[in-house]
Amino acid sequence: MQFDQFLENSERRAYQMALYATRNSEEALDIVQDAMLKLADKYADRPSNEWGPLFHRILQSKINDWHRRQTVRRKWLQLLPFSTGEENDDLIEQAPELKSCKPDDKLEQNRAMEILDNAIKNLPQRQQQAFLLRSWEGLNVAETAAAMNCSQGSVKTHYSRAIHSLRESLEEHI
């Protein structure tokens, strides 16, 4: 597989994952752009089967960095006397609504997808990463651990908790 073809195949899913994490399209775009640039700069000459785990390792690191910066920013904002706490509301409002591009889909299936979408958004960050990497990207436990920079045991724990949480939300719908 050519490098540009790999990026073309990955960019939309990467954007969607970053969007789930940030709930902000501009931030998600920046994260994906940084990840693509870094992959191209450092690892374009590596074997093509390594690009996937490397790209997601970079992407998840960028997402984690973004979360750390947001946490610090929120802490500082809380210290300011004129802080109103409207930041989080804005981010939630910016999150795109799920719309089906297939109008003929069954109503119940759309409802299930809408619930799944919200449930994924509400997963804790690491559970969300583990679920999306395994479910969307098809990475195995070892590759997911490499992408998330954690042990395989942690991946299993995060994934299992994610599935448990999603099951609670979706059980009546699927």
């Binding site: 795109p96 799920l98 479910s135 999603l166 699927i174």
Partner: peptide, 18 residues
Amino acid sequence: KLQSLSLQLQDNQACDID
């Protein structure tokens, strides 16, 4: 079922990207 639904969700969201 969850796997199937989540892939479908991913496809739909990919279609919806501006």
